[in-house]
């Protein structure tokens, strides 16, 4: 019995991404190493995403604090506000929201850049210029995304908590020292480590999906737009899937 067309397309796409990922793992450690391009990508993907990630992180911390406050006041545990915000931001909200924003900014730009390079034959031009375009364009971007996202998440968490500190002080008075003491007293190793580890997988997913969509962009400007769009959609879904798996694993190890 033949598979429905959509199912067949989905399975084919999944197979292609798996093959593309396999190609990444067979090529990333082999010379020639594109060190300069890797650092350039770290600068573009990491440093240039910082203002957006910082701003959204700050708003996230501030808003979360202000939204949580009335419920905690109702139960008389207002003093637990810094601890609650810290745990929710570090464990879940910080990594996932930052990864989603990262997917929107970096995933789409990688998809569009590589897509337009593909349709204007720039990838072929690299190939004839003695360059392995997969290494130069794909490996460097995937590695940069994988390594930069955890750093961005850590910074975003810190900025979020600072936003939270300001949020706490809108309706009450909590000293800077007391706020941070409460945050760190309630955060444990098992809160930070799983979140940190899963952020590498989020970064890898954004990098691999963005480069895959761009590298296999179909001809024409419409194809470039579609690559950028589907890079964001697919990597966002993957972030949630990875998060779901990560929660099951941390639960299995008793970290929840």
């Amino acid at each position: 019995m033949a598979l429905p067309v959509k199912t067949a397309q989905f399975l084919e796409e999944t197979g292609n991404i798996a093959r593309f990922t396999g190609r990444f793992f067979t090529q990333w450690f082999r010379p020639r190493y594109e060190v300069a391009e890797f650092f350039r990508q770290c600068y573009i993907i990491g440093y240039r995403s910082l203002p957006l990630i910082g701003l959204t992180g700050f708003i996230m911390g501030l808003v979360l604090t202000m939204q949580l406050r009335p419920s905690l006041v109702e139960y008389g545990v207002e003093s637990q506000l810094p601890a609650m915000v810290a745990i929710s931001i570090v464990r879940e909200i910080g990594p996932v929201i930052t990864a989603l924003i990262f997917a929107g900014k970096v995933g789409s730009s990688i998809g569009a850049e590589l897509g337009s390079m593909k349709v204007t034959e720039q990838i072929d031009a690299m190939e004839v210029s003695g360059t392995n375009p997969f290494k130069y364009l794909v490996v460097t971007r995937v590695l940069a995304a994988t390594l930069m996202l955890p750093i961005l998440i850590m910074l975003s968490d810190a900025i979020s908590l600072y936003g939270s500190y300001l949020g706490v002080n809108i309706r009450g008075i909590v000293s800077f020292r007391l706020f941070w003491t409460q945050v760190f007293d309630n955060l444990s190793f098992s809160d930070v480590l799983p979140a940190f580890i899963k952020s590498f997988f989020f970064g890898f997913a954004v990098g691999i999906v963005g480069t895959f969509k761009g590298y296999h962009s179909s001809k024409g400007t419409e194809g470039v737009g579609r690559s950028a769009n589907s890079a964001v959609v697919v990597s966002s879904i993957l972030i949630f899937v990875i998060d779901l798996i990560a929660v099951q694993i941390t639960d299995l190890f008793g970290f929840n």
Partner: peptide, 15 residues
């Protein structure tokens, strides 16, 4: 390839 030049139809200049 270093001894063979290739002029692409779309020029393929790196943007």
């Amino acid at each position: 390839r270093a001894k063979v030049g290739f002029l692409f139809q779309s020029n393929a200049l790196y943007d």
